[in-house]
Amino acid sequence: MRAIYKKELRSYFSSMMGYIFIFFILLVTGIYFTAYNINSAYPKLDYTLNAVLFVFLVAVPVLTMKILADERRLKTDQLLLTAPVKVRDIVLGKFFALVTIYAIPIAVICLYPLIMSQFGTVSLFEAYTVIVGFFLLGCADIAIGVYISSVTESQVIAAVITFGVLFVSFVMEGISQFFSTAAVTSLICYMVLVVLLALIIQSMFASKTIAIAVGVAGEIILLIVYAVKSTAFESGIQKFLSIFNLAGHFDNFASGILDLSGVLYFLSVIGVCMMLTVQSILKRRWN
């Protein structure tokens, strides 16, 4: 893992990629910090960092696009996968290298509250909570980018898909408002999801009986729950979609609350993406 971690760090800093990523994040946050906190003398970082969340949409795909796709294109994955290391260690080594690069602009951002405190009273706890949330959100976005980079061998495709996924997640709150909050809507959506789940199971295990069993059982449970307590379904679809709304989980941090469920959420997103990445690499050997 260390070998890969060191190699990736060196590779990002021997090309322009690492510097561009750091420069871009610092440029955007710097402009907003100057405008909101210096010029308007607003003592909190919440607006500032909330306003710069769009930076991930561009910076993360650029950072992560080559991380695994390029190994495949240049066939250097043959070296990594035939070396006595676990695939998990390869993926984690790469992820931590990216997180380290991302930690550099975060370290600079950590100076912002200190700068502000020169001019008045600033709640350092609140300020650093916002920064922690911002850091975790970025790490989760990077994890998504790493996974997408593992499914293709084209950097461009990886970048475009990563942008697409992050964008949909970014506007997820708006999307969820397309749906009515009525219980019936949620029920229908859940039923469709169960059918999708059944289809996925069928393609994964190639077993019709399991798929049909899961599908039918799921639908029946949904209908029973709906019959017994239909209020449980109210605005259910919004709750479901909020799982994919990464930026939404940053809100609590932004209001200065060190939100443990939020921390857990971001860590789970990272964990799931890492697992998917390992699986997508392992699965390719079988094709």
């Binding site: 190699k7 060196r10 590779s11 021997s14 090309s15 240049l74 066939k75 250097t76 994955d77 043959q78 070296l79 990594l80 035939t82 070396a83 006595p84």
Partner: peptide, 17 residues
């Protein structure tokens, strides 16, 4: 894998090193 050293058809080299 510890027992094996492998040179694939296309050498797995990192060009920026």
């Amino acid at each position: 894998k510890k027992y094996i050293g492998y040179l694939p058809e296309q050498p797995p080299l990192y060009f920026d090193m």
